[in-house]
Design a protein around this nucleic acid. Structure first.
Lengths: 208, 208
DNA sequence: TGACATTCGCCTTTTATTCGCCTATAGTAG
DNA sequence: CTACTATAGGCGAATAAAAGGCGAATGTCA
C-alpha cells in the first residue's frame, strides 16, 4: 500500500520535515520549512503540504501550530527497541554491573534475535576490529558461540572480557584484536560465554 | 497511539515538571512552574497544563495542591529518535539520493543538536578511523566544520565523500584515513560541507 | 486563614490558510 | 508548427485562528 509518488520538491519537503522532527521533537512551522528549503513564500510550502496530505504521506491537524505529523513510514512496531545498558567491559576486569538501570533505544536492525544488551568498551584490545575505547557493543545473550566469533567471555566467574573465540581441542583461545596484546589460553571448562557481539555504536564527542 | 504533538513551550513545561518531580519527589505548584520558566502569571501556566492534559501527557487531580501526575514518561520509550537514512556515500561517487524514504530509530545520545541523518559507507577509505565498509555514519547537517573534523564533503556538486577536513590556507585537504589512499587537495570554494560525522553504527551479520 | 488552583478579560506574537497572479514545461488539438 | 491547456513551482499580501502572555478576581481545600 505505497502512497502516491512524490515530485522531487515534495520529497524534499517531506525529508525536511522528517529531519526537523528528529532533531527537535516537534514539527516545523511552515516558515521554518520555507527557510530550510530556501523559499520565500509560505503559500508555496502550504501548497506542497496540501499535496503531501492528499497523497497520504503526512497528517495535518488543521489550523494547529506545528500540527504536522509524518505518517509512520515504517512498521508501527515502534522501530526502536529498548535494551539494557549493563555496564562496562574492560580488557580483563569484571563488568561493573551497573545498578544504573539505564536503557538505550536501539534501531530495530541492531537488535538480536534473543535477549540483547549493551556494554561499554574500555581499552583498545579490539582496535583491529574497528572497535575503540568508549564504543558501545551490542551483545546477544548466548551460552555458546561458533568458532571465530567475537564474544563476551567470563573467566573464573570473575574476569569478563571482549575477545574473539577460537577452540583448540580441549582448550579455548581468547584472542584480542590488538597485536600488542597476547591471547589468553584456558581450559574450555573455565570459560563461560555470556554473549556474542552483533553490533557497535560509537558517538564522537564534538570538539569545541 | 502516540499522544498529540506538543509545541516547544508545552515541551518545556512538561520537561520542567519531570525534572522537578525527579528532584523533589512531588509535583510542583503552578507558581513554581511560573518561576521555573520565568513567567509571571499563573494563568499562563494553567493554560499550558490544560493543553498537556488534553493532549494526554499529564493527569491532574482537579483543585488539589500539587495534583499533577506525569503520565508514562514517554511514548517513544527512553527516547528513540527517527532520522532519515539518505543513501550511500562511496569514496568518490555521489550520494545515491535514495528515494527509499527510509528512516532509522537512533538512541537519543546518538543524535546531533541540529538536523541529523544517516548514510551508509561504501569502501574502506576510513579504515584507520575504525569505520568499515557497510557501517552507518550518523551525520549532523552543517555547512562548515572545524579543522580536523570528519565531514561529508561535496565537490563540484557531484562527488560526495567522507573524509577528514584540513584547511591549508586558501585550499582544503580532504584526507582519507587509509594510508593506501591519497588526500584530495582543492580550492576552498570548490568544496561544500554537507555535515559532520558524529557517530557510527555497525551491525555484524551472523555467520552461519 | 492561607496557600493553592481556577476562571475571566484582554492583550501581542506566531502560524496556518487563502487569494490573486506569475513563470516554466509538457502534452495535445488544430 | 502553433495555440491551448494542465500542472508543478513560485511570489507577496491579507486574514483569522492558535499560542503565549498578562493581572486580577474567585473558588477550594486543609
Amino acid at each position: 500500500m505505497t502512497p502516491d509518488p512524490l515530485t522531487p520538491r515534495q520529497q524534499q519537503v517531506l525529508q525536511f520535515i522528517r529531519s526537523f522532527f528528529a532533531a527537535h521533537g516537534y514539527a516545523p512551522t511552515i516558515v521554518e520549512i520555507c527557510e530550510g528549503l530556501g523559499l520565500s513564500s509560505s503559500a508555496t510550502v502550504h501548497k506542497h503540504l496540501r499535496m503531501l496530505v492528499e497523497k497520504g504521506h503526512v497528517d495535518a491537524l488543521p489550523r494547529r501550530s506545528r500540527g504536522l505529523q509524518v505518517k509512520a513510514p515504517r512498521a508501527p512496531a515502534g522501530g526502536g527497541v529498548d535494551v539494557p545498558l549493563l555496564g562496562t567491559v574492560t580488557a580483563g576486569r569484571p563488568i561493573e554491573m551497573s545498578d544504573w538501570n539505564e536503557t538505550i533505544t536501539l534501531p530495530e536492525c541492531m537488535v538480536g534475535r534473543g535477549e540483547t544488551f549493551v556494554l561499554k568498551v574500555r581499552g583498545d584490545s579490539m582496535i583491529d576490529e574497528a572497535i575503540r575505547d568508549g564504543d558501545l557493543v551490542v551483545v546477544e545473550k548466548r551460552d555458546s558461540a561458533p568458532n571465530g566469533e567475537m564474544v563476551i567471555a567470563c573467566l573464573d566467574h570473575e574476569q569478563v572480557t571482549l575477545k574473539r573465540l577460537y577452540r583448540e581441542g580441549p582448550r579455548v583461545r581468547l584472542q584480542p584484536s590488538n597485536p600488542a596484546m597476547p591471547p589468553i589460553l584456558v581450559e574450555g571448562c573455565d570459560v563461560t560465554i555470556k554473549g556474542v557481539v552483533i553490533g557497535v555504536l560509537r558517538r564522537y564527542r564534538p570538539m569545541s
